[in-house]
């Protein structure tokens, strides 16, 4: 982990929401700039396009759109930087990146059986597990 510590410096706290906001744009831009090298490191060319990755990054950031506390934003920013660094350091493997970002939480096994459309939520849950 030493390289992460070296690479990720803890920036000073944001004084207000404005500063935090500009930092968020900053990290988005940095991430977008590293997309080409990420695609190269993890051989992602044949599964996603650059623009798709960009929107994935944007949606990751939008997940926290409701956070207004600058301290929390700082923390999230730190985590984001760390994550980006891990990816760039090749601290992850291809399937991590694919599983986590390209496919999303649903994963590879997606139940998109057309027959399932009209089912009640009870039956959908029933097929998944006994505990619901």
């Amino acid at each position: 982990m030493s390289f992460t510590l070296r690479a990720v410096k803890v920036p000073p706290n944001s004084v207000n929401l404005e500063e935090a906001r500009s930092r968020v744009f900053e990290i988005f831009k940095t991430a977008c700039r590293s997309i080409p090298s990420i695609m190269e490191i993890y051989n992602l060319d044949d599964i996603v396009s650059k623009s798709q990755l960009r929107s994935i990054i944007a949606s990751e950031i939008r997940k926290n759109a409701n956070v207004t506390n600058p301290k929390v934003i700082d923390m999230l920013l730190f985590k984001g930087t760390e994550e980006l660094n891990n990816i760039l350091e090749h601290a992850k493997q291809r399937h991590h990146v694919i599983g986590q970002y390209v496919l999303g939480p649903q994963g590879l096994v997606q139940d998109l059986d057309p027959k399932d459309q009209g089912l009640s939520s009870f039956l959908k849950n029933f097929y998944k597990s006994n505990y619901f």
Partner: peptide, 18 residues
Amino acid sequence: PTVGDARDDWKIIRALSE
């Protein structure tokens, strides 16, 4: 917990009924 892919009895019947 239940073993394997088992379900509670009433749930099976409820699912089958649907």
